[in-house]
Every structure is written in structure tokens, then in C-alpha cells.
Computed example of a mutant assay.
Amino acid sequence: MASLARTVPRRALISLQSLRTSSTRPVRQSLQSLQPLQSRTQPHHLHLQPQIRPYHSTLHPRLPDHEYNNSQIAILSAALPHIPEHGFSAEALALGARDAGFLDVSVQLFPRAEFDLVLFWLASRRGLLRAKVEEGALFRRVADKSGRDASSFSTEEKCRILVMERLKMNSDVKGQWQGALAQMSLLSNIPVSLTELHALSNDILSLSDDSAVDASWYSRRLALSAIYASAEVVMTRDPTPDLSETEAFVNRRFEDKEALKQKIEGVSQCVSFVGNTAVGVGRSWGLKI
């Protein structure tokens, strides 16, 4: 419960790419009112517009954003500490409204009800993950534990670290996560849930310095999304306090992914070799190919 006292740090809220409001000035006033959930000691800049990746065309449609006004952000932020006990529920929302100085009836501000609390949790944890990497603390901490230099981590190693760090952010709500997964699996909620999952995998690869722009751009994100989604299910049944079983599962999945990638590359190289050989033989026979 101690970690949830700082559940929405200022830099995490600032770096949320999925939360937008109509103006920046009221947001500053709202953020100032969220003590003690946020620290006042860190510098901040508001970046409310989602970033556009260099790989995306300007003609490519943007992913839909989760739009919340100032009152909704205040209620959702105050509701997060109640999730471990009350889950992603209307009761947690009502308690958050009271803590933020609103009436219980204010939960009607959320058309998607409890699912908005799930989305806000996902977006805020994603923002917190980005803030940790931008501050340089995450990779440095892991490097110090392993006796390595943080600059020596490969892209895949960074992906594994970020996946596990994101999963560990769910530790305090692990007992309630099956309820969140159930809400995300509802037919009407699946598109937005998949959008958030894609945003997470895209962020993880971006933070891992994966700058490759090729035909596998989408397949890498799909593979990482599949690994993370399956690891979340394993996490809900992991009895270990440090999620060691989940970490072992994640490591196996990454190894399987690399093995599958090598097999696919091997098959493609074989097909290419056979094709080039056939073309060479045909030309030696006088065929115009």
C-alpha cells in the first residue's frame, strides 16, 4: 500500500500521452489540487498532445485518445489508492470522488463507469514507466544489480526489463486484476483495450531504442503485445511476492520469439536460395527469366 501513496507522480501524469483536456491552464490548477498524491518537488512541463512517431505517415489515422476533463482526472487519481481493496469498481470511484471533494453522484461523469478506472490505471502506469526511463533510474538500477553498464543492454534486454517493470506496477492490484481483464474482454471494450495494449508495446520498443523501420515494424509490436498480455494472465496466478514465476515465463516467451524468428528467417533464406538457384538454372537453359 505504501507504493500507492505516490500512485500518480507528477511526471507520470504529465507524460500520459493518452489523456487530453481542452485547455492547459485549468489542468495546472487541477494538478495542484491533487496533494498528497503527487510530489510538488519535481519540475514539470505539460505535454498533453500525443506524440507522432516518425514512422507514421501524417495521413495515417491517429489512435483514439482517452479524453478526461479536470474533474474526472481528480476523481480517477483519488480512486487509484482504493483499487487494492475495492477493485476496479463503482465503489472505488465513489470513494475517489469523496477524497477529491466531490459528491458520490459525480461518478456519473464517467460514461464507461468502472472501465474508465481501468483505462486510467493503464494510461497512468504507462506514463510512469516512460518517466522512469526518461529519468534514467530504471536501467541504471538494473545495471547496478547485475554489475553491468546500462549502455551495454541490448534492445531485447531493455524490452524484458520494461515488460517486467510494467508488470510489477500491478503488484498492489494483482488480486483485482482478473476483474480488470474481465472488463477489458467485454465486446464493447475490446477495441479501446487493444489500442492501449498497442500503445504500451509501442512505448516499450521506443524506450528500448528500437528504431528499426522495416517490414517487421508491426510484427514486433504484435509479438510484444502477445507476450505482455499472456504474462498478465500468468501474473494473476503467481504466488511469489517478487513475481519470479512471471519473470521466468516472460524470459521463456522472449526465447521462443527469437527461436521462431530464426526459423522464419531460415525458411525465407532457404526459399530465396532455391528461387535464385532455379532462376540461374533457367537462364543457363536459355529461358528469358
Rank of each mutant, 00 (worst) to 15 (best):
R6G: 13
A12T: 00
S15A: 12
Q17G: 09
S18A: 11
S22I: 09
S22V: 13
Q29W: 06
Q29Y: 12
S30K: 11
L37S: 07
L37M: 07
S39H: 10
S39G: 11
R40Y: 06
R40W: 06
Q42W: 08
H44R: 07
H47G: 09
H47F: 13
L48R: 12
Q49M: 10
P50F: 05
P50R: 04
Q51I: 10
S57I: 04
H60M: 13
P61Y: 03
H66T: 15
N70W: 10
L76M: 03
A78K: 11
A78N: 12
E85A: 13
E85Y: 06
S89F: 04
S89N: 00
E91F: 07
A94R: 13
G96H: 02
L103P: 04
L103Q: 15
F110D: 01
R112C: 11
E114G: 01
F115W: 06
L117K: 04
R125T: 06
L128N: 11
A143E: 04
S146F: 10
G147Q: 01
E156F: 09
E165V: 02
E165A: 15
M169T: 08
K174G: 04
Q176S: 08
Q176T: 07
M184V: 06
M184T: 05
S185A: 15
L186N: 04
L186W: 06
L187K: 12
L194W: 04
E196V: 02
L197S: 00
N202F: 05
D203R: 05
I204C: 08
L205V: 02
L207T: 01
L207W: 01
V213N: 09
W217E: 09
R221Q: 09
L222W: 07
V233H: 09
M235W: 02
P241S: 08
E245C: 05
T246S: 05
E247C: 06
A248C: 05
F249T: 03
R252E: 15
E255T: 11
K257P: 00
A259L: 12
K261Y: 12
E265S: 13
G266F: 01
V267K: 12
G275A: 15
T277H: 04
G282R: 08
R283N: 04
S284F: 11
G286L: 08
